[in-house]
Each structure stands twice: as structure tokens, then as C-alpha cells.
Amino acid sequence: MSLTRRDVEGIAHLARLQVTEQELPVYVDSLSKILSFVEQLSAADTAAVEPMAHPLEGEVQRLRPDEVAESDRHEKYQANAPQVKAALYVVPRVIE
């Protein structure tokens, strides 16, 4: 399987990565190689295999009771934030 330049540009954009013109062909090549490597799996016959959502066979999700156990600690958490105003996290303007 081989990727095009456009594929790589798209993937980079979705991941918010800046890829330079020089880097692009390198990624096209190396990502295509990775895909080809993984593609060997499609040679295996999986018709009778149930798709697996998790490697922990036989384990299931534990459920917790619906109880509030957290208190308001926003000041502590917001000490990490680059910018805060009126208890809001401040980010570059996003509006449609």
C-alpha cells in the first residue's frame, strides 16, 4: 500500500503537525513502508475470527455507582493553565 502526498498532508493536518516540503516525501515513503509491513496481516484468513475490541480476553468493564465524589478544585487545576479569566480557561478565539 502506498500513500500519496495528499494523504500525508491530510494526516498531518488532522494531527496538527507541520510538515515541511522537504519532509513530505520522506514521510510518504516511510509511512507507506509501515503500511505495507502491517498489510501482511491481511494475508491471514480471519473469516472465522470474532473481532476483538480489547486484548484482555474474558475481562469486562466494571461499572461504578452513580455518586458524586469530587469537589470543586478548579483553582488548583487552573494553576497549570497558561491563561485563566473568571474561572474560564482562556484560549485563542474560536467562533463559527
Partner: peptide
């Protein structure tokens, strides 16, 4: 285990799981 009540002060009901801190794990509400 954060509260879901409407109209609380901003971010008063957002804990480490809700904030997406590294290393936290979600546990499903029954």
C-alpha cells in the same frame, strides 16, 4: 465522579478525568 448539575460556577465540576490529565482512567457510570 464529578457532579452534572446545571448552572454551577465555571469549571467547578471538572476534575482531572474531565480535564484529560495524563494517567487518569475513565470508569463507566452504571
Amino acid at each position: 465522579a464529578s457532579a452534572t448539575a446545571f448552572g454551577a460556577e465555571p469549571n467547578a465540576q471538572a476534575n482531572l478525568v474531565d480535564l484529560g490529565y495524563p494517567g487518569v482512567l475513565p470508569v463507566l457510570n452504571r
